[in-house]
C-alpha cells in the first residue's frame, strides 16, 4: 500500500473530543478533500497527520510506517510535503533560493560551510519553478511577490522533496476566486503527472466539487460522510450540519 492510512485517530483537549475515532485513507494519485463546519476537527485532524500534534489513540501509517507524533522534519523524510494555510516561505531569500534551500535540505547538505548556497541545484530549482509558472520571478525577493504567487512558490518548495503525499491546509485561503481555481487546477495536474496523493481542507465548495476525486466530511470530531461529490452533496446529515437548507445560495454574482 502506497498511500496514507489513518485508523481510529482520536484526540481530546480537556473534555472536548476534537477528533473522535476517525479513519480514512488516501491513495497515490488521489485528490481527497476534507470538509466540514468550523470547529469540526479538520485542523486538529490535519495536525495529527503532519506531526504537529500527538494523537491520544489510533495510528497514521504511511509507506508501511506509523508516523503519528513524529517531528515535522522526520515526516518530511518519509516523503510527505505540506503547504500551510498562510503560505510559509523564506521572505529574505529570492524565489529560486527558496526552492534551492528545500533541495539542499532534501539532499542533506545544510551543514556545508564553504560553497555558496545559491550555486547548489540551481537548474533543478528553475525547472520546478517553471512547472508552477514562477520561473520568470526566480531572482526576485520572495517578499515582493503577490500572495497568489507566494502560494505557487510554496508549492514548488513542497515538490522539491519529491513527496508521495502532499498535505494542503486550506490551500486557497485568502485568494481571489480566479486564483483559487488556477492553483487547484495546477495541483490537480501535478497529481496526475507525478502520482502524488493529496489531502486538502477547503472552504470554497466550488473548488471542492470541481476538482476533488473524493470528499470526506467531519462534524463534531467525527467522520460523517465519505464519497464522491454527488454522494456527499445529497447526504442528509451533511446537509444538516454543513450546507443548510440551501435558502442562501453561495454566489459572487449571477452566473454570466
Amino acid at each position: 500500500m502506497n498511500g496514507l492510512i489513518v485508523s481510529s485517530l482520536s484526540k481530546s483537549f480537556g473534555a472536548v473530543r476534537a477528533v473522535d475515532n476517525v479513519s480514512f485513507s488516501v491513495d497515490g494519485g488521489e485528490f481527497l478533500a476534507l470538509i466540514g463546519p468550523n470547529g469540526a476537527g479538520k485542523s486538529t485532524c490535519f495536525n495529527l497527520i503532519n506531526g504537529q500534534l500527538v494523537p491520544d489513540a489510533g495510528s497514521v501509517r504511511f509507506g508501511g510506517r506509523d508516523i503519528a507524533g513524529s517531528p515535522a522534519r522526520k515526516i518530511c523524510r518519509c516523503g510527505i510535503a505540506r503547504t500551510f494555510q498562510i503560505a510559509a516561505t523564506f521572505a529574505s531569500m529570492t524565489v529560486a533560493e527558496n526552492v534551492q534551500m528545500a533541495l539542499i535540505a532534501h539532499e542533506r547538505e545544510i551543514y556545508r560551510l564553504w560553497r555558496r548556497a545559491n550555486s547548489f541545484h540551481r537548474q533543478h530549482a528553475l525547472e520546478l519553478l517553471r512547472r508552477v509558472g514562477m520561473h520568470e520571478a526566480a531572482d526576485r525577493p520572495c517578499r515582493e511577490l503577490a500572495y497568489g504567487d507566494v502560494k505557487r512558490v510554496e508549492l514548488a518548495i513542497a515538490l522539491a522533496g519529491e513527496p508521495r503525499l502532499l498535505l494542503m491546509d486550506e490551500p486557497t485561503a485568502g485568494m481571489a476566486p480566479r486564483e483559487r481555481r488556477e492553483l487547484i487546477a495546477l495541483v490537480k495536474a501535478l497529481i496526475v503527472e507525478r502520482g502524488i496523493a493529496v489531502l486538502f481542507t477547503e472552504h470554497s465548495m466550488d473548488v471542492v466539487f470541481a476538482f476533488a476525486d473524493r470528499i470526506i466530511v467531519m462534524a463534531r470530531g467525527r467522520l460523517i460522510a465519505d464519497g464522491d461529490a454527488r454522494t456527499v452533496r445529497n447526504d442528509p446529515r451533511v446537509q444538516q450540519v454543513y450546507f443548510g437548507t440551501g435558502r442562501i445560495a453561495e454566489r459572487s454574482g449571477s452566473a454570466a
Binding site: 522534519r73 510559509a88 523564506f90 529574505s92 531569500m93 534551500m101 535540505a105
Partner: peptide
C-alpha cells in the same frame, strides 16, 4: 561572512524566516 553565504548560513536564515517551513522541508 563566508558561512552566511553557504548552505549552513542559509539554513540558519531559513529557520529564522519561517521555522514551520524550515522544519517541513527537513531542517532541524
Amino acid at each position: 561572512r563566508r558561512i552566511l553565504f553557504a548552505p549552513f548560513g542559509y539554513a540558519m536564515r531559513a529557520g529564522r524566516d519561517s521555522p514551520l517551513r524550515a522544519e517541513a522541508i527537513g531542517i532541524d
